[in-house]
Write a protein that binds this DNA or RNA. Structure first.
Length: 248
DNA sequence: AAGTATTTCAACCGCCCCGGC
DNA sequence: CGCCGGGGCGGTTGAAATACT
């Protein structure tokens, strides 16, 4: 409304990213490290995209520390717990899951978890039985607000920030949820393992480095890099798996 | 095998917040 | 103190993939 768009959209490409575009963006980021101003990235990287689009592509898809694959049962549990206290603050929720993006969690919530909670007769917003939620419809907003209490306002249980009594309620909810998942025969067998201990440990272990190297190998085989790709080793700037340390 | 319905998820849109001036 | 611009975030869309008839 009267506000200038984030960029001049005329002549800019939209829609799915091509391999070549991914290549250009990754190459630029790997060779330049921190991005002080995303607005300049498309110009400098030779992309016909808006800066926001580049940022999103990097964060949601190209980042080397991204964890791929389906959500594990424990991750889903954690999402439900966090959502019951944080509401739709996807970025806050995602901050508890290294390697997962807010977009990914949001999508998973909207497509799967929400549906399963509804099947259980639970309101995905209030996390309470639907009848209950209807009965207290007038107070729904209040409920919602209280359920979306800011994390900093809530005494913390471990790193997650959950009151003990509320945690018990959430655990009951999760038991029902797990039973439901079981009855639908959800398959987590192909999903990678996950633990909050692991996720709360930001230290770059040798294991993590290995996985990042694997990622790079994987990307190398996945993308058909063009001849103009500058191997990072040759560039001598830094290795891709060091990105997490310098904090892009 | 073909057509249709449903699901998934990458990407976009637009608002809000915050820092710089 | 107010304005401006950029980044971040949540909601939404739509194309592609998958399931079903």
């Amino acid at each position: 409304m009267g506000r200038k768009p984030c960029c001049d959209k005329v002549g800019l490409k939209r829609g799915p990213w091509s391999i070549e575009e991914d290549h250009k963006l990754m190459n630029f980021i790997f060779n330049n490290g921190t991005i002080p101003c995303w607005r300049n990235v498309p110009k400098l990287a030779g992309l016909l995209r808006c800066g926001k689009s580049c940022r999103l592509r990097w964060i949601n898809y190209l980042r080397p520390d991204l964890k791929r694959g389906s959500f594990t049962e424990s991750e889903e549990d954690q999402i439900i717990r966090l959502h019951s206290h944080l509401g739709n603050r996807w970025s806050k929720i995602a901050s508890h899951f290294p390697g997962r993006t807010d977009n990914e969690i949001k999508n998973h919530w909207n497509t799967k978890i929400k549906k399963n909670l509804k099947l259980l007769g639970l309101d995905p917003v209030t996390h309470k039985p639907t009848e209950n939620a209807e009965k207290t419809d007038g107070n729904k907003k209040q409920d919602q607000e209280s359920s979306e209490t800011k994390p900093e306002d809530v005494p913390c249980k471990e790193a997650v920030g959950i009151q003990v009594t509320e945690l018990d309620e959430t655990n009951d909810l999760l038991n029902d949820y797990e039973m439901l998942c079981g009855s639908f025969d959800l398959d987590y067998s192909h999903a990678s393992s996950f633990s909050m201990e692991e996720s709360n440990n930001p230290s770059t272990s040798a294991q993590e480095e290995d996985s990042l190297k694997q990622w790079v190998d994987c990307v190398d085989s996945f993308f058909s890099w063009g001849d103009n790709f500058i191997p990072l080793e040759e560039e001598n700037s830094f290795l891709p798996w060091e990105i997490s340390r310098i904090g892009i």
